[in-house]
Design a protein around this nucleic acid. Structure first.
Lengths: 149, 149
DNA sequence: TTTAACTGTTCAACTACTTAACTATTAACG
DNA sequence: CGTTAATAGTTAAGTAGTTGAACAGTTAAA
């Protein structure tokens, strides 16, 4: 691959990945509506799948400082979506779980996103979709390694 | 494709695309440093490539309200990165252009991101990279259509 | 010429994030 | 055992980015 080729590839990669990122987030936001922000939805999603988790865990997964998690969980707690429970054995630890309301809202939002993504991937054929997911999974793997340096 | 298949595909798609989005943004942020935020960098990028543009144009491209653009451009103007120039023919319009400092900072940040992305895509073979870009371009195209509804 | 449409700004309110200092608790080690 | 380290989470001040609604000024349309 010659020098201008790689520069051109990198250029296209940057431009189009940024564009896709912005547009996808915007679509999801429109679909979820005003009950939940994107970040709050993905927080509910994580807690739901983990059953329960800690602030430190969320901070690592979302790659933000713990104080950012405290603030977000407080906002969600004020809306009645999550609960804080202190660990009896290690009194430093606080477990986060979904309330009934939080779970309901999560399921509703998840359904909406499923419909959105399904209608979206229906615009492509099977081979293409497999390729999309393969692409994302490969990128995700290498990004995880790069982050861990 | 049976029903559980498509549900599973959608699940994987949502999870992995969110993960990639977060990690990529985080890497870029680390690379750019504290001089520029991701959004400010991509705003510089857009203005640089367009030569000059308007607030309305940016609002449409980034899919945010015009007041959000006013606020961001003001922050960048305070840092001496962009200029506002009123159109002489249509006094409603304000043209945004990069200052010398803005352009320098953009070029520097762009170099950093190029090195990052290049080292990143060097971890894959040519066929894979072509596939990545193809994937993003297909997604971008359909996302644009979906947004326009 | 009045009315409508458009461009951009201001303001209040909100989400999200960082840094730094802090509390409370547990673990480590001499 | 007791002092010191590390760990989990919170608080507070400051910044970035966003929305919605009201607004000023300008241009286009009726």
């Amino acid at each position: 691959m010659s020098v201008p080729d790689i520069k051109d590839l990198v250029d296209r990669y940057i431009a189009v990945s940024f564009s896709v990122e912005k547009k996808a987030a915007s679509l999801v936001k429109d679909q979820i509506g005003s009950d939940l922000t994107n970040d709050q939805h993905f927080t509910l999603r994580y807690i739901n799948q983990a059953g329960s988790c800690t602030s430190s865990e969320l901070a690592e997964v979302f790659d933000v400082k713990k104080s950012a998690i405290t603030a977000m969980i407080t906002r969600m707690w004020e809306k009645g979506l999550v609960q804080r429970t202190r660990d009896e054995n290690d009194r430093r630890v606080v477990y986060l779980t979904l309330t009934e309301k939080g779970n309901e809202l999560y399921v509703k939002a998840e359904e909406k996103i499923h419909i959105l993504v399904e209608s979206f991937i229906n615009k492509f054929d099977q081979t293409e979709i497999q390729q999309f997911i393969e692409t994302f999974e490969k990128l995700d793997k290498v990004l995880s390694q790069t982050n861990g340096q």
